[in-house]
Design a binder for these strands. Sequence first.
RNA 1: UCCCCGGUAGCUCAGUUGGCAGAGCAAGCGGCUGUUAACCGCUGGGUCGUAGGUUCGAGUCCUACCCGGGGAGCCA
Length: 485
Amino acid sequence: MRALPGRGRLARSWPRRYLGAREVAMRERVREILAREQAGGEVEVRGWLRTARHAKGRSFLEVSDGSCFAGLQAVVEPEIANFEAVRGLRNGCAVVVAGELVASPGGEQRFELQATRVEIVGEVGDDYALQKKRHSFEFLREIAHLRPRTNTIGAVLRVRNAASRAIHDFFQERGFLYLHSPVITASDAEGAGELFRVTTLDPGDPPRDASGAVDHGEDFFGRQAFLTVSGQLEAEIAALALTDVYTFGPTFRAENSHTSRHLAEFWMVEPEMAFCELDGDVEVAEAFLKAVIGAVLEACPDDMAFFEKRIAPGVIETLEHVVETPFERLTYSEAVEILQRSGRDFEFPVEWGVDLQSEHERYLAEEHIGRPVVVTDYPAAIKAFYMYLNDDERTVRAMDVLVPKVGEIIGGSQREHRLDVLTRRIQAAGLDLAEYWWYLDLRRHGSVPHAGFGLGFERLVQFVTGVANIREAIPFPRVPGYADF
RNA sequence: UCCCCGGUAGCUCAGUUGGCAGAGCAAGCGGCUGUUAACCGCUGGGUCGUAGGUUCGAGUCCUACCCGGGGAGCCA
């Protein structure tokens, strides 16, 4: 971090409720205080009480500012001017505490703050919902405005942040350009799921054409519009000019999916690389997952230790394994053979031509291989029209990365860049060639082999943190029937 | 959308064969203590998801609906 002049010094008039830009940039967080080499010196922390323990002779306040998993314990003695008011503090109160950083005689923390001043900035009411006990995740979702103050969600949000940063770092270091693909789209680009309609028409009295149908020509965009289900097609446009690009933004699916792995609004990462075929795609995907997971392990050790202890025992070993060992590679045909020879009694029998079920993916990644598996070359009939058709005419250059517990975390492919084949595939899929005129036009002018993949960001966060439900991997989950906060 | 499980105090849950609605935590009050989700005592706190039905009597049995969870499908 930058060394700014005067950093860590107390503001002249105290307490200062409002910090200037310079002071905000300079303020020392609990994370940095706890990382100090040794005790000593004046510090000031601003945050919310995780707990307040009032003993007869003194009070113990654990102040968290969200910068790290642990809080800083402040010890308040009766000599403090507003000691009686401090006695009334409890879990959730907002405070500013200043004092000397000293070695802690208590066994559970290295340092503590011997308070010289305590300002009570915000108290809590008797009905404050967060208690110093375990709450169910279901209940916490109903109080999403307080949820980030909990151990689990606070840790998830820090991991989410670290993973976001690692994603940008990975691509930026390799010369990828960050492309902002549109959120509003006019066509159901790849048929990937149900779309949310975007309209400004009066739902109770829309304009109608001569036949009585809703006249979308009168709508805001002069035609039907939707929220994007993927930035891939736009990423292909950019890749065929800028070589390597990636998108990282919100994506929307209006499917009525009620599972622990689906959200109606989620974030997706989609790199797209020109002059790249399936092998390169797989290599980038593997390096990408390893880099991001490795970066989180390094950036958030305390948060990860919490997940290991309380949420998903074994998660750290699983992640380290992912970072250290090469991914297994199988073709779809090989995977089918392995599954058929497994002797397993699957609910859905395996045969060449049908898509792999969750139980099959989990068997491959968790039991048969025991580490991430990349399955390639799926039957053309079960994959999207834009995937490159192999010479056998029955498989496409698709790849799925399967990880233990979560299943498919990355799906990608080499794209069909041959005009004649793509035209044929669009028609075979029953799609309207006219809708894809620009996508086809790209194949007429300077078309090159290119490939990319998509990663569901919340599924990555879910995999890394071990939270059972994807709704805990995003600060404000949107699912069928629920969009509060 | 389909299958299974659940909904009882602010929270987490128990509630027997249909027979007076309970505990822990939280809250309020008091006590104790360099404390660690502190501890001890007392007090207050209920439309048993909603609407019907069976019954002398329903938290408990039946029906429908709502909400939550798990699984499947769809997918990232």
